[in-house]
């Protein structure tokens, strides 16, 4: 969403001048980012560019060396990790997992499980779920706290492409129905294009940011990802937009600007 003059959306979470180092390695270099009410902000960047570190800092998991994170007072964040390394020695049903650390009303749990598409799995062992079901269980756990902001770290790791598209459609639907803001990490811009309002491209520092189409055409983005990433992974965009096929890239882009 381009910001209009005088139209100041309420900022839920703001990181200012965030710097994080592991030994000699500067993972985050003076990164500033903010998430506003009801928006879907996607963070992209190559492997090892500090995406997860930024997510961890904003979610309150890691402490930056300098810079500060400001949250709107009373902000509730729902955090969905990239994956869950579950110890096989720990018996845990989905129902018990959803009640950690705080217990929730059974009817509320049933409702959120319906919404996230894991109806009827409440007595299953968490470790027996498929990758997609596990991601949905993690999402359900985050949603149970009625968050104002969802923070998702590469939530579709381990999903196949239809599963991935499906998951992002769900995220978009949640934003539309519950008004929850979303800050998520993705490894590929094209997969999340139509589900994002705004994109930040990170390579230890913020390379560029803006609407998905602005970022895709930005020289900084092209320098990181090259021009060749348009092909196969544009699948979701095509399906989602119900578009005709067009091989002229620039015309194509214009034709799909309504998607963002």
């Amino acid at each position: 969403m381009p910001e209009m003059p005088g139209d100041a959306p309420v900022k839920l979470l703001e990181g200012e001048g965030l710097t994080l180092e592991y030994g000699d390695l500067t993972v985050l270099d003076n990164v500033s980012v903010s998430v506003s009410e009801g928006e879907i902000l996607t963070l992209i960047g190559p492997n090892g560019s500090g995406k997860s570190s930024l997510v961890r800092v904003l979610a309150g998991i890691a402490t930056p060396k300098s810079g500060k994170v400001m949250r709107r007072p009373g902000l509730v964040i729902g955090y969905v990790p990239q994956k869950l390394a579950l110890a096989p020695s720990l018996p845990l049903t989905v129902g018990r997992f959803l009640n950690l650390p705080k217990r929730h009303d059974a009817a509320w749990i049933a409702q959120v499980m319906d919404e996230t598409g894991i109806t009827g799995l409440v007595d299953r062992q968490l470790g027996e779920l498929s990758g997609g079901q596990t991601q949905r269980a993690l999402l359900a756990r985050a949603l149970l706290t009625s968050p104002d902001l969802l923070i998702l770290d590469e939530p579709t790791t381990g999903l196949d492409q239809p599963g991935e598209a499906d998951f992002y459609r769900q995220i978009e639907h949640l934003r539309d129905t519950k008004g929850v803001a979303v800050f998520m990490v993705s490894h590929d811009l094209h997969v999340v294009m139509s589900a994002s309002d705004r994109v930040i491209c990170l390579n230890h520092h913020v390379c560029c940011e803006g609407t998905p189409h602005v970022v895709r055409d930005a020289p900084e983005y092209r320098a990181l990802f090259g021009p060749g990433t348009k092909g196969a992974l544009a699948l979701y965009q095509h399906q989602h937009d119900h578009s005709h096929h067009d091989h002229g890239h620039h015309d194509h882009d214009k034709a799909h600007d309504h998607a963002g």
Binding site: R56, I61, Y79, A87, L92, L100
Partner: peptide, 12 residues
């Protein structure tokens, strides 16, 4: 229990 399940989930 939460900290045992995942340190990240616990901290969040």
């Amino acid at each position: 229990l939460t900290a045992t399940l995942s340190e990240d989930l616990a901290m969040a």
